[in-house]
Computed example of a mutant assay.
Amino acid sequence: MRNKKLLELLNSINAKKTEVIDLSNEGKIEEAKAAKEELKNLQEQFDLLKDVIDPDGDGQLSEPQAQGAVPVQKKDSTSEFANAARSGFKNVTMTEGSPADGGYTVPEDIQTKVNEYRSAKKSLIDLVDVENVTKPKGSRTFKKRSQQTGFVKVGEGKKIGAKTTPQFERMSYEISKYAGYLPVTNELLSDSDTNITGTLISWLGDESRVTRNNIILDTVKTQKKQAITGLDDIKKILNVTLGQAFKSTSKITTNDDGLQWLDTLKNSKDEYLLQPDPANPMQLRICAGATIIPVFIVPNEDMPSDVSTEGHRKVPFIIGDLKEGVKFFDRNLMSIMTSEIAAIGDLNAFEEDLTIFRAIEREDCKIKDSAAFVYAEFDLADLTVKASKA
C-alpha cells in the first residue's frame, strides 16, 4: 500500500510535468507557472513520503511502476547550466527576460552563486541602499529633511497657529543595460561541468561587482568635491557638515592610497590612530579623541586616485552614511548569449575556435540624500609640502 501511494504520486508528478510543458507551448505562461507550483508541491510530498517509507532504499520502488512513469530527478544546476552553455543557450527554456534583448536568463540558483562571488570581494553595493525592482522605470516618494521648530506657546482661548506641513520629494529611476563579453576556448566547453560553470560564474560575478562599483562611484562623484588637507578637516565634516544626524552611522570609504595616509597618522603619544576594531579585528577604524569612525578600503584598481597632468595625486574620501545617501535600483535580471562566429575588434570567434559569451544586467543609481555624505579629495602633494617645511 505504501509503495502504491508513492506510485500514485509519481504518476501525478509526470502528468503535471506534461501539463506544464503543454501550457508553456501554448503560450499560457501564467497557467504554466501555476501548474509548476503544483508540480513543486507534489514533488515535495513525494520526497517527504519517500524519506519516511523507504529511508534506506536505493530510490527504486519494489512494486512495478505505472506505465510511462519516470522518477523525477532532482535538478543539478551546475550540469544544467554547463550543458546550456555548451549548446550556446539554444533550445533551452527562457525563465524570464526581455524578448527584445534575447538571451538566456541566468537561473536563480546560478545567479545566487554569482552574487556570492560578487560579495566575496570589495564591493560598494553593501554600503548603499539597494532596492530590487521589477519594472524598467518608476519613482519613489521621500519625506524631505526639515528643521523641526517645536510647538509655540498659546494663550487661553487664543487660536493655535498653523505649523509647517511635511514636505515630500519624488525620486525617479530608469533601468539601464550594462553589458560585456568574455571569449573562451571551445576546449573549455568540452571540459567538466564544474570548470565551465565556475569560469562563467567568476566572470559574471567579478564584472558585475566592478560595474556596480563604477555606477555607485559615478553617482557619488556628482556631489561637489570638497578638498581636505588633514584629519582635522575629516573631523569637521563629521561633526559639523554631517552633524549628529549621520555621524553615528558614517564611514570613511577610501582606496589603498588613502589607507597608506591614514595608516601613518599618530597622536601626541606616538600611537597610530588607525586601529582594528576589538569586536571585529577585520574592521579598521580611526580613533582620534572623541571621533571613532569605521574605515572601508577599496583597492586602487576599483577606486583609483585622480592623477592630474601636474602630477598631483588626489585621493578620494567618501565620508558619511551611504545607506541614506545613495539609492541603487537593481532589476536583478541577468541574461547571457553566445556566438561562435562573432568578430569583435581583432577577435574572430570563428577563426580562433572560440565561443564569445555576452552578458547583460540592468540597474540604476540615484542620490537619495545629498546631506548624508561628502565626497572629499586629499592631495598627496600636501604631504610633500608639509615634509619640506618640517
Rank of each mutant, 00 (worst) to 15 (best):
D193E: 14
A381F: 14
E363S: 12
R86G: 02
Q60S: 09
L42F: 12
Y117L: 04
L262K: 00
G320C: 05
K269E: 09
D22V: 04
A279E: 14
R2I: 01
T249E: 07
Q167M: 13
D256A: 11
Y117N: 06
I318M: 14
G320K: 01
K177G: 00
T384P: 00
L322W: 04
K389M: 11
E187S: 06
T197L: 03
C287M: 13
A227D: 11
L204S: 03
N214W: 03
D22M: 06
L182K: 09
K153V: 15
I110W: 02
K90G: 01
A376F: 07
D263N: 15
K366N: 09
K266F: 06
R140P: 00
V114L: 07
K74G: 10
V240F: 08
V240Y: 10
I344N: 11
D330V: 02
Q67F: 15
S370E: 13
D321S: 10
D321A: 10
D129R: 03
E271K: 06
F168Y: 14
T249N: 07
V307L: 08
A343F: 10
D302A: 11
G88K: 07
P294M: 05
V92Q: 12
L273D: 05
P299F: 07
N213G: 03
E44H: 15
P55W: 13
Q226P: 00
S79W: 12
S119P: 00
L333N: 06
P64S: 09
I292F: 02
S146E: 13
K163F: 14
T249F: 01
Q148P: 02
Y104F: 15
T197S: 13
A34G: 11
V72H: 14
S77H: 08
T185R: 01
G243S: 07
L10I: 02
M282F: 06
K153L: 15
F151C: 01
R86W: 08
K137G: 08
T194D: 12
S176A: 11
E174K: 08
N213F: 04
I356L: 11
K75P: 05
Q275R: 12
L7I: 12
E37A: 11
V210R: 08
S79P: 04
S335E: 10
D346I: 04
T112S: 10
K159D: 15
Q148Y: 12
T253A: 08
T222N: 10
Y117P: 00
L189T: 03
V385G: 01
K153D: 14
F168H: 04
T112G: 02
A279Y: 06
K221R: 10
I160Y: 14
E363P: 00
L39V: 11
E174R: 04
S388H: 11
V184D: 05
P276F: 08
T229F: 02
G345V: 09
T93C: 05
I216R: 01
T241C: 01
K159S: 14
G198Q: 12
E8C: 00
K386P: 01
T222K: 12
G289L: 08
S308W: 08
G150Y: 14
G157A: 14
K90C: 01
L383D: 10
D126E: 12
G157T: 12
P71G: 09
S146V: 05
L42N: 07
Q148H: 07
G57A: 13
F296M: 07
D58R: 03
A85W: 08
K269G: 05
T384H: 02
N213D: 12
Q45A: 14
N213H: 04
D101L: 07
T199V: 04
T95R: 14
F296C: 04
